[in-house]
Computed example of a mutant assay.
Amino acid sequence: MPVRLSLAALAVLALAVVLVPPIVQLDQSLVDLRAAGQPPSLSHLFGTDEVGRDLLVRSIYGLRVSFLVGLVAALVSMVIGGLVGLAAGSLGGLADRLLMRVVDGFNALPHLLFGIFIVALFAPSPVAVVVSVGVTHWTTAARIVRSEVLSLRSRPFVEAAISGGASRTRVVRRHLLPHLFPHLLLATVLMVPHAIWHETALSFLGLGLPPHLASLGNMISDGQRSLLTGAWWPSLVPGLFILVPTLAVAVLAQRLRDRLNPRQRSELEL
């Protein structure tokens, strides 16, 4: 997917998420059996589900919920991972080895199964999904931050600051964090689609968001029953609302990574 097409797709979806909910109010408990299971038409562009709800409107509401949950979950995982990686890289020695063993232990756990275990401790809610994703996906950020901190510690300007008597806190605040921010931003952008997939998987299994709440995972799960009657649109429409924005974000994140690290791009092109 080209960069311009990705930007256009995200812009259209963002406008829909912002403008549609205030204009078109969605009754989550609406049941209109007269309009149930209608295929795509002029009255319902993407058709209706098994109880007569418009799939386009529900998908937009579901995308808004999934994106907000994914964004908050990604930020939580980046904060946890960033702090752990910064502590490991800055302290070094025994603290570094112990923290990295904790990271290895979390990486050895199956993320989805561990996430299901965490969500099972709470009632289905956005908070439970945020906690599940944040607790299971912080290790990537920790490794990224630690490797960057270890690289920065050997730079002349950091060594000069340490030799000049700068405290550890000052070195972290003035010299490490400004260089780490672009990498954390990239990791957060890449984590958002992954968090959305995680939330969708949990909701599909009935463990994520409440069933009455418009969620892309819930909609795909409900659409499975319609496949038996030949209705393909209840599953396809929310699936597209997951696939298109996540692919667009991945393309833009790849471009951002090339701009942040042009040397890596030139090496890959050789």
Rank of each mutant, 00 (worst) to 15 (best):
F204E: 10
H179T: 04
A187N: 14
S151E: 14
L228G: 13
A214V: 06
P178R: 11
P178E: 09
W233A: 11
L209S: 02
A195R: 05
H179G: 06
G164V: 05
H183C: 00
L228E: 12
M191E: 15
M219H: 07
S167W: 07
S154D: 14
G208D: 06
V149F: 05
W197Y: 15
T188H: 00
F157R: 04
S154M: 08
M219Q: 14
S132L: 06
L213R: 14
F157K: 07
T200Y: 06
V135I: 15
V135W: 01
S132I: 05
T188L: 14
E148T: 04
I220N: 03
M219C: 08
L228Y: 12
R168W: 10
E159K: 08
P234V: 06
L186Q: 05
M191P: 00
L227A: 11
W197M: 13
V130N: 07
T140S: 14
L185K: 07
G223S: 08
N218A: 03
R143Q: 14
G164F: 11
V189F: 08
L150S: 02
A160G: 07
G134K: 09
I144K: 05
V172D: 08
P193W: 03
M191G: 11
M219N: 11
A142G: 12
T136Y: 07
R174Y: 03
L228A: 15
L207D: 03
L150D: 02
R153N: 10
R225Y: 13
I196N: 02
H175D: 03
T136E: 07
